[in-house]
């Protein structure tokens, strides 16, 4: 244990603590809390019952008031620890509450009603994970549909992105033709035209194509990413042209050269683009919000934002759905974080 501490607090030169070391560790520990804390808090909250969510101050772990079924009452009753008039305490079940007075019964002897001031009773609580928060949206809401829409958009858009962009990158890296530089510049120039600038006319075009309220209207405008063409082309430039010549001598058609020689050799760059594309498309919000106005077409992001903007927010469901929405991205983070961070540091793209 002390070894771990020593390892973690290892400092340059092994000299004493310098003020910069204190700042460093304060910053790192603070960062750890600020970066992960909110997400962890959200996950923890997502297991709380609606009643627990409405409490202030909140508890760290999910607690619910214990309930008992008492003879003579249809519904289970909440259990409280009440301080009686004689000063003794007893565990009683609340039948009803009138003003500041709570009418309670002893669960073992339900005949007699005891009146207790509500200030003199505290709920008997137990830890309980409200898994209903997760299971109910799956059965009662359109949540499954949103999930499916998001998965469909993400997978389809990523596949098309990979095919369309790798074809363009192939043309731009392995063929000599007039206008090649022009085409490349055109593609890179589109980096300067973000969605927020062209959303009005783009909306009209998508509508004119009959893609309004259609998942393809979400997918198609996103699949030709300049960054995708760019990273794939850079990678393909490192594949020797002699391989293409050799394949031509081997009677391969240009299409075969593309998918049997170039594509397999571009696999590492394709993997990077695939990961980015999945994260991008999964997280897309503004454009789906514009294109999709029918509930059954919402993606997760749109569905979540619409539900959370409602007057009477059902936080217990929203929180659970948010957690589910986070899962794929968190998985990507856990397994591919190193891959992505080196990719970004290398290319400066996101």
């Amino acid at each position: 244990m002390s070894g771990i501490v020593r390892f973690l607090t290892r400092r340059r030169g092994g000299k004493g603590w310098h003020w910069t070391d204190i700042v460093t560790w304060a910053w790192l520990i603070g960062g750890l809390l600020v970066m992960f804390g909110p997400a962890v808090w959200l996950v923890g909250s997502s297991f709380k019952s609606p009643a627990a969510l409405a409490e202030f101050p909140p508890t760290i772990l999910p607690y619910v008031t214990q309930k008992v079924t008492v003879e003579g009452y249809d519904k289970p009753l909440d259990l409280y620890e009440a301080t009686l008039e004689d000063g003794s305490t007893a565990v009683l079940a609340e039948v009803r509450r009138i003003g500041v007075v709570s009418q309670m019964v002893d669960p073992k002897d339900p005949g007699e009603i005891v009146k207790v001031n509500i200030a003199k009773r505290t709920p008997v609580r137990e830890m309980s994970f409200a898994t209903d928060n997760y299971t109910e949206p799956f059965t009662h809401f359109d949540f499954v549909r949103y999930l499916w829409n998001s998965v469909f958009v993400t997978v389809t858009a990523t596949l098309i992105t990979l095919v369309v962009n790798s074809m363009a990158a192939f043309a731009l890296s392995k063929y000599e033709f007039r206008g090649r530089t022009m085409a490349m510049l055109l593609i890179l120039a589109t980096l300067m035209v973000p969605l927020s600038v062209i959303m009005v006319p783009l909306y009209s075009i998508v509508s004119a194509l009959g893609l309004f309220n259609n998942l393809w209207g979400v997918i198609l405008p996103t699949v030709a990413t300049p960054t995708g063409v760019f990273i794939l082309r850079q990678y393909m430039l490192t594949i020797p042209d002699e391989l293409v010549d050799a394949a031509r001598m081997d009677k391969a058609s240009e299409w075969q050269i593309y998918w049997r020689i170039i594509l397999p050799l571009t696999a590492p760059a394709l993997a990077v683009l695939a990961i980015f594309s999945v994260v991008w498309r999964w997280n897309d919000f503004l454009w789906p919000l514009i294109v999709l106005s029918r509930k059954e077409l919402y993606t997760l992001q749109v569905g979540l934002s619409i539900y959370s903007g409602e007057l009477n927010v059902q936080w217990h469901f929203i929180l659970a759905m948010t957690v589910v929405t986070m899962i794929p991205v968190v998985l990507v983070f856990i397994f591919l974080q190193r891959f992505i961070t080196t990719g970004i540091a290398g290319t400066g793209l996101k």
């Binding site: 010549d245 031509r248 001598m249 081997d250 391969a252 050799l265």
Partner: peptide, 19 residues
Amino acid sequence: PAADRGLAMVFQSYALYPH
């Protein structure tokens, strides 16, 4: 086109398909 000339070529870098 090259494919239809019935010739075969050995390249300086060998150009073997690495995969």
